[in-house]
């Protein structure tokens, strides 16, 4: 197995993007899941469709929409540009792409965790003097922890593999925005790149297995902790 300095840079960037996208999405994912599980309001179905849309849309479509919004002529892009922030073709755009594509997976896992919480625990908490935000922090949050861990690992793994949206909105610039899948794509397009592509594939598999393994271990620990 042979890895070039560019490959190491792609691995580091992939990790950085996946960690940032997951960390940034977690509070929003928790809030969205909470709203979907515990709140009743008109337009809830619309919210569900919007949250789950990235699961069914081709990532390239998502990337293209992000590009339209974040580009110089896009309404978000213009606003950011006026305060000196450029996102398109930077690693931050790759974070946004990964966050958008992985968000439904995160919300879905947290939601499953929240749905398994006995509603009477929340009623008990409220009747024992806790305002809604206290119940959220002291009952819902700790009891959703397993769902959050599961969702974060899924989202992290999905971010590591993100390709379509990233290449459109962040490009494929070695050392700047080139992640593992984009580097593999480059090697696969070159007649002499098979060995290099395979090396990165092995790294990719190792990373995914590690994430899933960690996910299982933490899940088991939390399960045993819950039974203490």
């Amino acid at each position: 197995m042979h890895l070039t300095p560019e490959d190491f840079s792609a691995i580091a960037l992939s990790m950085k993007i996946a960690v940032t996208a997951t960390a940034l999405s977690l509070p929003f994912g928790f809030a969205t899941a909470w709203v979907m599980v515990f709140k009743r309001f008109r337009g809830k179905v619309l919210l569900e469709v919007l949250v789950n849309l990235p699961l069914t849309l081709p990532p390239v479509v998502i990337g293209y929409f992000l590009l339209l919004m974040l580009g110089r002529n896009g309404w978000i892009g213009q606003a950011l540009s006026s305060v000196g922030i450029e996102l398109v073709f930077t690693w931050k755009a790759a974070v946004l792409a990964s966050a958008t594509v992985g968000f439904p997976l995160l919300v879905r896992s947290i939601r499953l965790g929240m749905e398994s919480i006995d509603h009477q625990l929340l009623q008990a908490s409220r009747s024992l003097g806790a305002p809604w935000y206290d119940t959220l922090a002291t009952v819902i949050l700790p009891l959703s922890f397993r769902g959050m861990v599961a969702g974060s690992s899924l989202m992290f793994a999905r971010s590591l593999g993100e390709f379509g949206a990233t290449i459109i909105v962040a490009g494929n610039i070695p050392g700047l925005t080139q992640t593992i899948p984009l580097a593999i794509y480059d090697y696969a397009s070159s007649p002499t790149g098979t060995a290099m592509a395979l090396s990165l594939c092995i790294v990719s598999i190792a990373l995914s297995v590690s994430v899933l393994f960690l996910h299982e271990v933490i899940g088991k620990k939390l399960e045993h902790g819950g039974k203490a």
Binding site: D118, Q120, L121, Q123, A124, S125, R126, S127, L128, G129, A130, P131, W132, D134, V139, P142, L143, G226
Partner: peptide, 20 residues
């Protein structure tokens, strides 16, 4: 009045102890 302001404690059919 919100439940926490009513100061009415409930003992449910199931103990509903916080498992964590």
């Amino acid at each position: 009045l919100s439940p926490e302001k009513r100061r009415i404690s409930i003992v449910f059919q199931q103990a509903t102890l916080f498992p964590h």
